[in-house]
Write a protein that binds this DNA or RNA. Structure first.
Lengths: 120, 120, 120, 120
DNA sequence: GTGGTCTAGACCACA
DNA sequence: GTGGTCTAGACCACG
């Protein structure tokens, strides 16, 4: 976690978990670390982790078995949708931003390509 | 302005001004609206506009003629650089984000292309 | 059992047993499954079933013959009362809730009727 | 607030606000009390109120104007939907519960009517 | 002044 | 042991 970062810690954690789930690092149905464990391993207050789990649950990405821990959803569709949404959000911000700077679609693609080749 | 948006209002205003400057909607050397005028027209607290102008000055994009108002810089290089920076920031966030989602460069470009064609 | 439900598992089990008793699916005086059997068949921790039986006893709905298992009470009055209580509890929550939403008695009845007809 | 109640305080507050909004006691677009104010008036920790506002916002019932407070949504449809949902949730729990107790629709309606007449 | 985040530490119900 | 709630108190960014 980056404590000096302006984006809230709980969001940083959420985002990391989301991308881990979406990329399969954490598998569907898998049990997540307990709040306390994760809190210790991230050197963060348990309440902060608690909040993360609660929000992930609100978004349908996790569910909790009472007294047994928090698990990743077993619904493939939810996870596929999540991936789409994450990608789309990124794209919207990016492309709309670029268009406001008067870049054409062709120019945008060219810039992405050259950026990618430099940072291979 | 979108008051229920999470990005601070002063940043929303700054970004709008920046893109207007970069795209030439506001020309080099042009006088900007006065703090009060802009505040009224955006229905925003004058303090907020104050901050915008101050930060734009810090970044060398504007300068103040005492008693006469705030003007856009007349230095082409500064503005060109600004455009590069804005575009680069957008790209970094976008591409890093997409890579965290396990998209390859080829896939990213494909997605951008199809997004662009849909929203022509 | 629904492990991701907010109502405690022991209550879910209790409620199911109660309604089975009240509706006669489980008869008066009948022997219930043993703690272990029930725990296995519901895939639940034996402690949880223990608690269910204990609470049912407290409410006078079951009784234990030492070494022989747990039995449903043979007292008709108790069971009749139980049914009344369960129904009344449901009604109070429902009607008070609807009144807080400003529904009149007439509207409530109309809504119940139409709900019932749709879900025949 | 009922501190000895088993349902969490923040939910009690949420429910009260929701029903106040749905019944028009709090009007659309109206500003809510500030977190601190409400916390004082309910004799509750500000964090608890904070949580309430956050959840209401997640559900689209409120939105916050940065630095200016929290406001009820101005979207009629959202509120109408909310009312429907609240009523439907109550009905489902009630009617399904009654059916599990072997009450027929006719009996249910009769019970509701008599309950209503007694508690006029 | 507003909302938002975080910590520390306590307590509870549940399995 | 698990998640969940609550308080007290601190600090921050924003308008």
């Amino acid at each position: 976690m980056d404590f000096s970062n302006e984006t809230p810690i709980y969001l940083q954690i959420m985002n990391r978990l989301k991308s881990d789930i979406v990329t399969g690092k954490i598998k569907m149905g898998e049990k997540l670390m307990s709040t306390r464990e994760l809190a210790v391993s991230l050197r963060v207050n348990p309440n902060t982790v608690q909040r993360v789990f609660k929000e992930l649950e609100n978004e349908g990405i996790c569910f909790t078995k009472r007294g047994m821990g928090t698990y990743v959803t077993e619904d493939e569709a939810t996870i596929a949708l999540l991936k789409e949404q994450l990608a789309n959000d990124l794209m919207m911000v990016f492309i709309d931003g670029m268009k406001k700077l008067n870049y054409s679609l062709v120019e945008i693609i060219e810039k992405v390509r050259s950026y990618g080749e430099v940072n291979k």
